Computed example of a mutant assay.
Amino acid sequence: MKHILFLLILPLAFFNCKNEKNANGKLNVVTTTSMITDLVKNIAGDHINLQGLMGSGVDPHLYKASEGDVSKLANADIIFYNGLHLEGKLVEVFEKMKQIKTIAISDALDKSTLIGSEYFASNYDPHIWFNTDYWIQATQFVVQKLADAIPEQEQVFKANGAKYIKQLEALKLEIQTAVSTLPKEKRILVTAHDAFNYFGKAYGFEVVGLQGLSTATEAGVQDVQKLSNFIIENHVKAIFIESSVPKRTIEALQAAVNSKGHNVTIGGSLYSDALGNSGTIEGTYIGMFSYNVNTIVNALK
């Protein structure tokens, strides 16, 4: 009943909030995931009023807009979101915001290069941020969209974008160097859900997620047993929990493996669908990716 009432009041809330003006005259930009918030912040700096909906540890697959989010969304001039049905539970909300410009980061990419997925209405794996080349394309895309919206700041956005792309290129080289120290036969990444397929494709990892691509699907006993056998057969040394997914499923997997006489450790917690805490290195896209790769390589060596 609450959900129905929430959807009924959305149009009225949008009408009321859009009549509110910002004192500083800057555009209101709202972002969904923490990765996108970090990306837009790097490009726009303090030339916009930026608000991110999802913080550290928030799972975008399961995220529902609260009533407090309505005012943020309704008062936005631009909303940047991932697309590809990552924020599946926000689709109904976006559909009621025809008067607000919503921009999907995934529109920057050639869909023919994406990994297919039957788990999402888009038919694509939405975890595109784990390919640094895609994130470079996303940066260029956001630069242009912001320049179109605020032409007087175009050169600033382009300069910031170029600077950020250099950092992303350096990150790509850092990842390649770290991964090259790990023998190919040890590049098997077992995590809570399949968030790392783009990473695996780019750097030669076989990626296996206990819950599949979406955390909305629960792992059953058969899934645990099947994956435990895979770990034993492939002599996998470590498996990984994720910061935005409850760790109980991976702990159950570890227990199943160990009960069969094979020792597997939990190699650490990876950031998958959200960045780390704000103000930390892992609270940035570059810091998060670097941390993840070092954690994976060190645990699997």
Score class of each variant (00 low, 15 high):
105 I>V: 14
223 D>R: 11
45 G>L: 07
85 H>I: 00
226 K>R: 10
195 A>P: 10
78 I>S: 00
249 T>E: 13
125 D>M: 11
169 E>M: 14
15 F>C: 08
202 A>Y: 10
152 E>V: 03
184 K>P: 03
127 H>F: 10
178 A>V: 02
179 V>P: 04
47 H>Q: 12
258 N>Y: 12
6 F>E: 09
170 A>N: 07
184 K>Y: 07
293 V>Q: 03
251 E>R: 06
299 A>S: 15
300 L>T: 02
9 I>V: 13
17 C>H: 12
5 L>D: 12
135 W>N: 01
100 I>F: 08
17 C>M: 07
60 P>F: 08
213 L>N: 14
65 A>R: 02
211 Q>V: 02
286 I>E: 11
124 Y>F: 15
184 K>G: 01
74 A>E: 09
83 G>K: 02
174 E>I: 02
64 K>M: 05
68 G>L: 09
262 H>M: 06
129 W>T: 09
227 L>C: 07
242 E>H: 08
1 M>L: 12
300 L>D: 02
78 I>C: 00
191 T>R: 03
103 I>G: 08
23 A>D: 15
237 K>G: 03
148 D>P: 00
87 E>W: 04
124 Y>K: 14
5 L>V: 08
261 G>T: 10
119 Y>I: 08
43 I>K: 04
196 F>E: 10
53 L>D: 08
29 V>G: 02
141 F>S: 04
35 M>A: 13
266 I>S: 09
52 G>H: 05
132 T>K: 00
27 L>N: 09
198 Y>A: 08
282 E>Q: 11
267 G>K: 02
47 H>G: 01
69 D>W: 04
10 L>K: 01
269 S>G: 09
273 D>Y: 10
93 V>L: 06
268 G>D: 13
165 I>W: 10
290 S>E: 14
276 G>H: 10
142 V>K: 00
110 D>N: 15
52 G>F: 07
296 I>K: 05
82 N>R: 06
260 K>M: 13
300 L>C: 03
130 F>C: 10
144 Q>A: 11
237 K>C: 03
64 K>F: 04
29 V>D: 05
9 I>T: 14
161 G>T: 04
217 T>Y: 12
45 G>V: 06
17 C>E: 15
289 F>L: 13
278 S>E: 15
187 R>N: 05
173 L>G: 09
57 G>W: 05
55 G>R: 08
8 L>D: 14
54 M>S: 08
140 Q>N: 14
294 N>S: 10
269 S>E: 15
76 A>W: 00
148 D>L: 00
296 I>Y: 09
53 L>C: 09
17 C>S: 13
297 V>C: 09
59 D>Y: 10
